[in-house]
Each structure stands twice: as C-alpha cells, then as structure tokens.
Write a protein that binds this DNA or RNA. Structure first.
Lengths: 188, 188
DNA sequence: GTCTATAATTTGATAGAC
DNA sequence: GTCTATCAAATTATAGAC
C-alpha cells in the first residue's frame, strides 16, 4: 500500500471512530505513518482527504449491501439477511454517522456521497420489495418505496440506539420489530 | 436568567448544533456572554456543563413526547401524532445526535441520560401500543415491545437520513412507511 | 515525494486581581 | 461572582531542505 492509500485508510478509520470534527490531520498522519509534508503533497487538506475516504467507504458499503440484495431467497429473506448481517453495531454506521457531523453536512462536496449512498440503498430496497410483491410473496397493498424508507431508517436508528445504550441489543430489537411488521405483509 | 442558566442554555444550543466534540468552552462563554472565570466558577469544566445541558434537554424531550402519548385518540393516532409532530428535522435529534459523539459515548456519566431517555421512550411507546391491543384497536399478534423499538429507530433514522439529504423529505417518507405498516395492524 | 522547522490560532484550563 | 492574564498542548496549515 502506497502513502496515499495509507492516508486514505487512516482517514477512513478515524472518520468512523471520531467523526470529521474529531479527526485531526496530525492523527491521520501518525496512524498512516506519514509526515505532514507527505499528506499535504497528496491532498490539499483535511476536506480533500475526507472526500477520498468517504467515497471509498461508500463504495464498499454498497458492494456489501448488494451481496444480500442479489442473493437467493424471497424478498423478505433478502431484507432480513441484510438487516441481520454481522455488523459492528457499537461503532455506528461509517456513512450514517457522518450525517450527524456539522462540518460534513455544511460542505456539499462531503455531504453528496453520503446522500447518494442512502438514495441508492432506499431505491435498491424498494426494488427488492416491489419484486416480492409482483411475485405474490408480499401483500399487494404494501408500498415498496415507503417501506424501503422505513427499513433504512430502522437500520440507521438502530445504530443510534445501540450506541446510546452501549449495547447491540436495541439494534436487534428494532430490527426484529420491523421484520415482525413486514412478516405480517407476507402472503400465506 | 442568571449566568449559570445562560451557560447551560448556551451549551444546549451548541451541543445541538456542533455536538460535544465540536463545542469549545470559548464558544459557550461567548454565546452566554460570560467570561472564563464565570464558567469555571459555576462548573468544573466542559463535561460538567455538558451533563447539566444534556439533563435539561432530556427532561424537555420527555415532557414534549408525553404530551402526545397522553393525548386523546386511539393508540395509532397518538403514535402518529408523536411522529408527525412539528420537528426541526434538519437540526437532528438533540439527544440522538449525542449518541454519535465519541466523547459522549465514552463517558458513562454523559451517556447515561441519553440511554435513559431512549429507554423511557421505548417503554412509553410500548405501553401505548399494548393499550391499543387490549382495547382491540390493534391486532392481537402485534408485539408492543418490538414494534416500539422499531418506531423509535425509524424516528432516529429519519433524522439521520434527513440530514444526509439536506431535506426533511426522507424523514417524512420513513415515518409514512412505518405508519403504513402499523395501519395494517389495525383491526377493521 | 518525504521530511523537519515554523507559526498563527484555538483549546481547555489555572491564577489571581477586583 | 466576575474579570483579565497566562499557559501548555493541539490544530491546521506553510516553507523550504533533502
């Protein structure tokens, strides 16, 4: 891994652990094993480096989600697989956490990849649900778009509740709760 | 309002806008119109002041939620009223946002009021849903505890998605989505 | 490309005058 | 109780040697 990559990986880890406001260039350099000159040679500053890091994290997140969505099983099984997939719940969502950061939200360049990731996720979930409805697995009265929004929100909210509790339990309860409501939409 | 109160109110506003990591004692003092000596006379430091601010915000939040829960109407109407109540969606949840802050989560004293607020909220929502089920408004197969967890998560996740999008729309969509799933649990 | 000064500013707090 | 020094460390860079 070259210096540029090490700097990006260091930034990704720190953005996840400390957020954008809580991450200093110095900490990025130390974790990457690079000097200041090195960092300012490859990137114009903290925002530039953060953008590269966020883009890479977003790309990785989409790829991992698509594994579940494109997998086998009914629509409900694929949504369940996605929500119940092993996650570092207590660390929070590496993308969702950025939405709480004031400096990320204030900078359109930094906010865009976050927004796009959630747009994609919601759209992809809606497709899976719509497919399940067409196949007759889910009630014809189910609203795929609205339900997809709710599912993404439960996921993000589950992370928030878990961090607040210092335990993964609230995440599991919330996911089971929404899966229970979804199961009631399954045709017998 | 005395100096102590002004300092607490200043801290409350800054914690909401900038988070704990992003809030400096200097900013707190300037907003409160107080000097450093004043702040360190009334509070031992930033954590002490933050604790007072978080407690006050949590108390206010519970009181506002209870207004909807204790209001008139069916269980579903009261949950709807709570979720659809006017909110500063783009500013995020003043309590939920703290759960993303690394220094809040790392300090048990600061995390506790956040955790307690969500515990209370989940418990209170479960009571409302259980009451609706007993009255025959909601399906006997509905799980009040799990559903309450999911509803709180949708609320918190809705805030996250709205901030990511720079628009309140994702919040509204997520809330409508979960209310749609809940409506399907209503007895005819 | 990488490194080591250097520096203006901010952070989070203490000391002591009033 | 409130204020103004004062302070050591961190922040976010820039400059210039190697």
């Amino acid at each position: 891994m070259n210096t540029s990559d090490r700097l990006i990986e260091s930034t990704r880890a720190l953005l996840w652990e400390r957020g954008y406001v809580g991450t200093s260039p110095k900490a990025i350099q130390q974790r990457a094993g690079a000097g200041q000159g090195s960092m300012y040679h490859h990137f114009t500053g903290k925002p530039d480096l953060a953008l590269a890091a966020i883009r890479r994290t977003a790309e990785e997140m989409r790829a991992k989600a698509e594994e579940q969505f494109a997998g086998p099983g009914t629509a409900l099984e694929r949504v369940s697989a996605y929500l119940l997939r092993e996650r570092d719940v207590l660390k929070g969502c590496p993308i969702g956490g950025l939405a709480q950061d004031p400096d990320v939200v204030a900078d359109p360049a930094l906010r865009r990849p976050v927004e796009e990731t959630f747009d994609w996720l919601r759209g992809r979930l809606a497709e899976v649900l719509a497919e399940g409805r067409e196949r007759g697995e889910l009630s014809a009265s189910l609203d795929p778009a609205g339900t997809a929004s709710a599912v993404v929100a439960v996921l993000q909210g589950g992370y928030v509740l878990a961090r607040a509790a210092g335990s993964a339990e609230p995440y599991d309860r919330a996911v089971k709760g929404v899966l229970g409501l979804l199961a009631a939409q399954a045709t017998l």
